[in-house]
Nucleic acid binder design. Structure first.
Length: 94
DNA sequence: TGTGAGCGG
C-alpha cells in the first residue's frame, strides 16, 4: 500500500538521496526513483517518489510542491495510473 | 538536457 508521486521540474543536479530526504520531511518514503531514458541513459528531469500512505503523499505535495530545490522549484503531483510498468502490457485481457 | 509518466530487482 503506497502512494506514488510524480515529481517534475527536477534539477539534474539532484540525487535520489536528496529527494528522499526531502520527502521524508513529509512522511515515510517507500522508494525514490529518478527517471532516466532507458535508451540514452539521460535523466529525463523528473522522478517518482513512493510514499507509504496517501496521507503522507498528500502532505508531501503540500510541502514539496513548488519547493525551491537547487534553484528550481519542484512540481509534485499524484502519479498517473500505474498501468505503465505492468510489463509493457496489461494483464491477459480476454 | 525542461511540462514531463516509471519497464527495474
Amino acid at each position: 500500500m503506497s502512494s506514488n508521486l510524480h515529481v517534475g521540474n527536477l534539477p539534474f543536479e539532484a540525487n535520489g538521496v536528496e529527494l528522499r530526504s526531502l520527502f521524508e520531511q513529509a512522511g515515510t518514503v517507500e522508494s525514490v526513483r529518478i527517471i532516466t531514458d532507458r535508451y540514452t541513459g539521460r535523466p529525463k528531469g523528473f522522478a517518482f517518489v513512493e510514499m507509504a500512505t496517501e496521507a503522507e503523499a498528500a502532505k508531501a505535495i503540500q510541502l514539496l510542491n513548488g519547493c525551491p530545490m537547487k534553484g528550481r522549484n519542484l512540481v509534485v503531483s499524484r502519479a498517473r495510473q500505474e498501468q505503465r510498468r505492468g510489463g509493457g502490457r496489461w494483464r491477459n485481457v480476454a
